[in-house]
């Protein structure tokens, strides 16, 4: 049984579990839909008032917003196990996972997923479609391909940040709120193109937590602001972020097995 098939099995069981509480599932999904909906409306209203943002049009920014939300949602749905990792440590569930002869990442992914995020996912997709329909310059397969790449790469990086946040749980139970800066804050800040912020932010979110690689740089290419191939490569380079994130998590596991608790 290979890892991929096991993951599929996990997903089907998690879905089965979620469907045991059908009403609750849809209510929560609706709640998530509304959360992102009001957030998008806010962007829209700001443009209504100000007209444009440093040369960016409303639909360009909404395209970015939609891509970020979709990516973040994917990460929240599938990376939920890392997002709520603290519970796994506290309840001793991690011990149970460590007692199985399987890759620990695979098992944590399979431990928990949150399918109610479908509400956010649909909302994000809807905004992207709407934005694309207002930006005729994007109606080329290559550009739509890059857009899809942005979403996937973004989802991977958000997941990486969840993994890093989970790693903190091995050392401390406090101060975990700081992780929210990088997850929810990262989502919030990437909603707008990074050049509206001060320079250090762009540097930090390109070189250290590479959200800008997933969203900002390819957005420059999509909207015709830059022709550089680096802009298309950036989402792929951003994925490198996952390597140190996973290594650090492994270190965390080693620390955990030497201190217990």
């Amino acid at each position: 049984m290979n890892a991929f098939r096991l993951l599929r099995k996990y997903i089907s069981m998690l879905f089965q579990s979620a469907m045991e509480y059908r009403a609750s599932f849809w209510l929560t999904a609706a709640g998530h839909f509304i959360v992102t909906f009001t957030s998008c409306i806010s962007v829209l209203l700001m443009f209504e008032r100000f007209g444009q943002l440093e040369g960016w049009t409303m639909w360009e920014v909404l395209l970015c917003t939609g891509a970020v939300q979709t990516a973040f949602t994917l990460a929240e749905c599938f990376g939920r196990g890392f997002d709520t990792f603290r519970q796994l440590v506290r309840t001793g569930g991690l011990d149970t996972l460590l007692l199985r002869p399987r890759n620990i990442f695979l098992q944590i992914f399979g431990w928990r997923m949150d399918f109610t995020r479908i509400g956010r996912f649909l909302q994000g997709c809807f905004v992207m479609v709407l934005a694309v329909s207002h930006l005729p310059s994007l109606w080329f397969p290559a550009k739509l391909g890059v857009l899809a790449l942005m979403v996937l790469s973004g989802a991977a990086i958000f997941t990486g940040v969840f993994i890093l946040g989970a790693t903190l749980c091995f050392w401390t139970v406090e101060g975990l709120e700081v992780v929210n800066i990088l997850t929810y804050g990262g989502q919030e800040i990437s909603k707008y193109p990074f050049d509206i912020y001060k320079k250090p932010y762009l540097v930090f979110f390109t070189g250290i937590i590479p959200y800008a690689c997933s969203f900002y740089w390819p957005l420059l290419w999509l909207t015709g602001r830059s022709g550089s191939a680096w802009c298309i490569l950036a989402p792929v380079l951003g994925l490198l972020f996952l390597i140190p994130a996973c290594c650090i998590f492994k270190l965390g596991v080693r620390h955990y097995t030497s201190t217990g608790s």
Binding site: G31, T38, S42
Partner: peptide
């Protein structure tokens, strides 16, 4: 009889309506 959903809906709306988002 549902914890997450109800809380989410109420808070998302009231957050927006209170002027916390913009």
């Amino acid at each position: 009889m549902n914890a997450g959903g109800a809380a989410l809906i109420v808070s998302a709306f009231s957050e927006f309506l209170s002027g916390s988002l913009i």
